[in-house]
Each structure stands twice: as structure tokens, then as C-alpha cells.
Design a binder for these strands. Structure first.
Lengths: 334, 334
DNA sequence: TTGAAAGCGCTAACAC
DNA sequence: GTGTTAGCGCTTTCAA
């Protein structure tokens, strides 16, 4: 059996109360006893039991996080930033993967609640079907929606301003002289897809651009990018530019254009969204919308802490402005 | 305060023991009482407290995992596979990021131990400096090294056969007629880098290939791939082929070759390692060595469970054979 | 300043 | 089959 505080106290010849006071920082203990306790803890190799502490305290100093799919290259950077931010305040992250399935998401939310996480960060799988999980959790625990949000759900959210991001892309290609522009993105199943679609519609109208071809809506994957490129290529004429809903789509699209000997940016401009690690390594390097992960993560934790402090705080929705990173796929770099 | 089993028992008019028996499956309870208990649990919205259960049981049904850097595109797929495998047996994953720093790695190991995880999966940051963390953990807890291992450390390990992987790549390019071959990889700081280097040396010797240029050793990043490409380009002549230590390096290298108008595979063949998501989307699509994540993850959990069953089991090292995925970067696809 | 003791929520002997 | 109770390891009153 592991060493407990009782063993430490026994060896130091003090009560467990005193040992506890020394070991968990709390109240004043005479220097002499304190030394004896620390000494015997060291000798015995004592390590505190966070489970027992949590049961006693009613807090676990841990935060749960549910991600739609950790394999998706955008999420790990967010996870990394959140984990780092939490660790600064001595808290740990319990990470769960929802496997893109709202019912898995709900199960994960329940196990995290059972584990008494102090708060929960959710990137919802779906703008509608994730509602059940959020409602159930929110009645018991501080929850922050990260990156995506559930439609008409009144709860805290921190993420990038998706619509603004797309409008940055549209303005960029318009400034480069594009008149006709296609949009390749995901079906508006999650809020990112919805907001990016809305951003596209509004920006193109505002700027009086022609929309070429249908808006092609599939999923946030390179495979869909490929398929969409084929549809565009099969059409009567290519647009001047293609704005993509995320980088994976854009990379797939670039690959298919390359295969078809369509030159980017000479024949058509292409933009992505997220600035994932490989955006800069694509051929050509991809102009995209960068999300400031660190800021998003730290705002998320700040909001979570505020919510933990005061459950009655009015809900906040924090939309953070992204920035455009111009690369060769829009010809902006020689 | 949250609903406890006491509340449920009270409302059902039974003892907490009976309520517990019903709610946590255990022993026989008369159908009538069982129904009453379940009913009142439902009405009150009772959810069990895993922390209390863990304190009582001495098991948390959770497994810790420490990853060198979750942002690195290879690790998320491993994390995903591990998380999925664990969830099949009702266990959760506590994920920590070591930020590529052995001292962070040690701290993370300690907090995971404090949280009483039932076992720990570590992808060591370093083949030498990660030793301290492993030793400290292993004296108290079942640990499995995943993917990488610590030199001369006698403990379980599951991963891909790195040397074999590289030799597959070398044989592949040799079969395609390459005579001179360069190796671009990371400094042998972690075991993957070490084994891949060894695999390269042995395979080239075995096959009587010329090694062209120095082995270029930097880090597992696209940036290093770029830099290494420049070094190769600055040399007197390009090798017939470049075998890269991982896909990120290869992708960086491809980018730089493209910029320099070196044609792949016409002028030089290039191979990667890992088969990350973007290997197939690179330009040209990258021939690489695929790691079977699912198999690796499930073997890892199997071994962890075996170790938890019997701490005296002799250490096992399970090297899983990777496979070569031929793509256009070695011209294997028309 | 220190110690004794209660109790966080749960489960498993142990009694009945 | 059911209830009573001890106790997992820890912190924190409450007394001394």
C-alpha cells in the first residue's frame, strides 16, 4: 500500500492534523515540527492523494474538455493551448474525444461530470444535436463552449469570429481583382460552418461580387476539397477565386487543381481557414485565416473561472478577431 | 449540493447499502426495492460520484498519458486510438503535454500519480532525460512506454519497428534504381530518431548503397526539412534519393525542392515516415511508412492491463511492423 | 500551536 | 435480502 499522511505523521511523532497542515500549506505550525514532518515525508517518499483531497474539498482541480475529433488537425493546437493555460494554475485536463458523434459526446460529458471536474470545455459536435449534452451539464457545472456553439443556447462561448474571418478572405481576393468567387465548405451542421457560410454570403453581397457555381457544401475534409474541385472543374468555367471553409478543404482542392493542371494563383485564387500547421507547406503555400489559439485558450479559461466564481454571471459570447495570412495561393507573395 | 446516494436511499425508503447495491450493479436486491431505488434516483437526477467511488475502491478507472507535444501531427492519432480503446473498457484518459521538456514531463507524471491513475502511458520526450520520470513512476504504478523508449530502461514498450520501417524505405528506393541516398532526420535524442538512424545505416550497408552527403540530422520538423534541402542543394550534386526521418521533414524538403525547381520524383526520390494525414496531400503525394495506430494502441492497452494484473511479469518490448505506402514522391504511381 | 474527531460519498464486510 | 457500520485519505472545525 502507498504511504499515507498517517504514516508520515506517525514517523514524525505528530498528529495527522499537523502533518496535513504542513504538507498542504495551510496554517501555522512550529518550524521544528514542520521540519520533522517534511523530513519524514521525504524519507518515506510520501505523495499526496489527490482523490482523497478532492473528495474532502469538493474540488478536483481538473477541467474536462470534449473535442469533436482529436485527429482533426485544428483541435490539437487548441487542446495544447488550453492544457498549457490550465497547468499555469495547477489544474489538469481530462480530454475526451466525441468521435464526431453527439451520443458519444453526451456519454463523455457524463463521465466527466462523474469525475467531478470543476468545469467543462466543450467544442460541440453539432449546432443542434449537442444541445442535450450541454443542457445536462450546464445544470450542474460551469461549461464553456469553445470554438463552436450550439444554436440558441444561452451559454458562454469563446471562439474566433468566423464570419469576420471569411469576410477578410473575401475582401482579400476582391482587392486582388477577383469578380467571381466560389465557396467550398461544410454543410452548416456546426456553428463554424454556419457562420462561415453567413460570412461568405454577406461579404460577397456587400462587395458586389458574383458568386460562381453553387456554394459547394460537404464536410471539413481534404476528401471533400478534392471532390469539390472536380465539380468546379466539370462546370462551364472556373471562378476567379475559391474561398474554402477550412484549410483541409483548401489543401484537397489544391491537390486536385494541381492534378488537373489548373494553376494557383494564376488561374484561380484559393484561400483556407484556420492556419493549420501544413497551410504554409501546401503547394502553393496557402493564404488563410489565422486563429490566435493562445488568446482563445486563455480567454476560455478566464471565462470558465469567472463562471465558477459566479454562476449567475450573464452569459458571455467572446468572438475574437482572426487575421489574414497572405501566402502564394493568392499570389500575394512573389 | 449534489444528490448523493443517501438522498436516493432516503426517498426510496431503503438503506444506503441497498441503494448502492442497486446503483452499482453488485449484489441481489429484491426487484421491488430495486425499482424503487432506480425510480427515485431518476427522479432526483442522481449521478454517482466517481471520486468517492475511486477513494473507496482504490482504483480510478482512468489512465494517464503523457505526450511530448500534442501539436505534433503524429501524436493526436495515437491519442485518439488510445482514447477509443480505453473507452471500450469504460476507462477515461487523462492527457498531459510535456511541452518537449523532460522537467515538465516529470511534473506531469507526478500530478497523474497524485490523481491515482490506474496506469500510465508515456511517449518519452528523450531517450536519456526521460529516465528520471519513468523510474519514479514505475516504482509505484504500471507504466507502458509508447512509440518511443528510454535507452537501457527495462520496462514495457509498444511501438513501431523504426529500423524496419526505414529499411523498407531504403529497399524501396533501391529497387527503383537509386544508388546514392541521403538521410535527413532528427538528432538521435529520442529513440525513434536513434532507431531510424540505425535502420538507415544498416540498410544502406546491407544493400551496398552509396550514401551521399552527410546524414543530415536536425529535428523532426518541416523547418528542418527545408534547411536540409538547402544544404543538399548547395552540395556538389544531389543524391538519387532522400530518405526522411518523418513526414514533416519530408514535406518541408519537398517544399524547398519545389521552390528550387528540383523535380520529385524525376530528379530525386523522397520518402517520409509516419503517414500523417497530410502525407497523401503533399505535392507530390509522399511515399511513406505507415504506422498502424489502432494496433499499436490496442497492444499498448493490452500490455498495460497485463502489467496491472501482474506487476512481476517480465518486461515486454513489442515492435510492430509498419508498412510502406508507395506514392508519387518515389514515382511509384504513374 | 496542536490533537481528536467528524465527515466528504461510496462500498463491502458483517450482522440480522 | 436488507440494514448497520467501518473506513478509503484527507482537511478542517472544535477543544485544549
Amino acid at each position: 500500500m502507498a504511504i499515507t499522511i498517517k504514516d508520515v505523521a506517525g514517523r514524525a511523532g505528530v498528529s495527522v492534523a499537523t502533518a496535513s497542515r504542513v504538507l498542504s500549506g495551510g496554517r501555522r505550525v512550529s518550524p521544528e515540527l514542520a521540519d520533522r514532518v517534511r523530513e519524514s515525508a521525504r524519507e518515506l517518499g510520501y505523495r499526496h492523494n489527490a482523490v482523497a483531497r478532492a473528495l474532502r474539498h469538493g474540488r478536483t482541480s481538473s477541467v474536462g474538455m470534449i473535442v469533436p475529433e482529436i485527429g482533426n488537425p485544428f483541435f490539437p493546437s487548441l487542446v495544447e493551448a488550453v492544457e498549457r493555460t490550465l497547468s499555469e494554475s495547477g489544474r489538469d485536463l481530462l480530454l475526451c474525444d466525441a468521435q464526431q458523434d453527439p451520443s458519444v459526446e453526451l456519454r463523455r460529458a457524463r463521465t466527466l461530470m462523474a469525475r467531478q471536474v470543476d468545469g467543462l470545455i466543450v467544442i460541440p459536435v453539432s449546432a443542434s444535436a449537442s444541445r442535450a449534452a450541454l443542457d445536462e451539464v450546464a445544470s450542474r457545472l460551469p461549461v464553456i463552449q469553445l470554438d463552436r456553439f450550439v444554436t440558441d443556447y444561452l451559454g458562454d462561448w469563446v471562439g474566433v469570429d468566423d464570419a469576420l474571418g471569411i469576410s477578410l478572405a473575401v475582401e482579400h481576393i476582391a482587392a486582388l481583382g477577383s469578380r467571381s468567387v466560389a465557396f467550398v465548405s461544410a454543410e452548416p451542421e456546426c456553428s463554424s460552418a454556419q457562420q462561415r457560410l453567413r460570412g461568405f454570403t454577406e461579404a460577397t453581397q456587400r462587395m458586389g461580387l458574383l458568386e460562381s457555381g453553387d456554394r459547394l457544401l460537404g464536410e471539413f475534409s481534404a476528401g471533400w476539397g478534392r471532390a469539390a474541385a472536380q465539380k468546379l472543374l466539370a462546370g462551364p468555367s472556373l471562378p476567379d477565386a475559391v474561398v474554402c471553409g477550412n484549410d483541409e478543404i483548401a489543401v484537397g482542392l489544391l491537390g486536385e487543381f494541381r492534378r488537373a493542371r489548373v494553376r494557383v494563383p494564376d488561374d484561380v485564387l484559393v484561400t483556407g481557414f484556420d492556419d493549420i500547421r501544413f497551410a504554409a507547406l501546401a503547394d502553393p503555400p496557402l493564404t488563410t485565416i489565422r486563429q490566435p489559439h493562445e488568446v482563445i485558450a486563455s480567454e476560455c479559461i478566464r471565462l470558465l473561472d469567472a463562471r465558477m466564481d459566479d454562476a449567475d454571471l450573464p452569459a458571455q459570447r467572446i468572438a475574437i478577431a482572426p487575421s489574414l495570412i497572405a501566402r502564394e495561393s493568392t499570389g500575394s507573395v512573389s
